[in-house]
Amino acid sequence: METATTQKYSVQLSFEEIRLPPFDDILILGKKCPHGKIGVSKSFEFLVPNEFDVFEIDGDPIVDVIFINKRILKKMNKDTIINILKEKVFPFVSECEILKVDFKLRIFYNSIEGDF
C-alpha cells in the first residue's frame, strides 16, 4: 500500500535597518580574530572614508589594534581613551574576537561664571 508524502515549509521572517559599519565609536581587534588591521582598514576606507583612526596596541598579549572614531578623538586624546579601554574593556577581550565599544562621551562644566 503506497503512502503519499507532501513537503511543507515554515519561515520566520523579520527585518530591521542596519548601518555599515555596524558600530559608531570604537572597535577592538584581537590578535587572532578573522579580520586583521589591513582588511578592516581597507573596508573602512570604502564604507566610511576618513572617519576612523587606527592604533596598534604594543605589548598587549590579546589586543592587536583599535579603531577610534575621529569624532571622539576631537574631544579626548587617544592616550586617555586607550588607558580607559585598557582598564575597563581589554580584560574582557578574547584573542579571536572583534569587540565593538559604545563610548558615549558627555562633557559638562560644573559652573560657568562671569561678570555682567
Partner: peptide
C-alpha cells in the same frame, strides 16, 4: 601566527 582572512593581514 596571524590567522586572518586576507593575505595582507597575515
Amino acid at each position: 601566527k596571524k590567522p586572518h582572512k586576507i593575505v595582507a593581514d597575515c
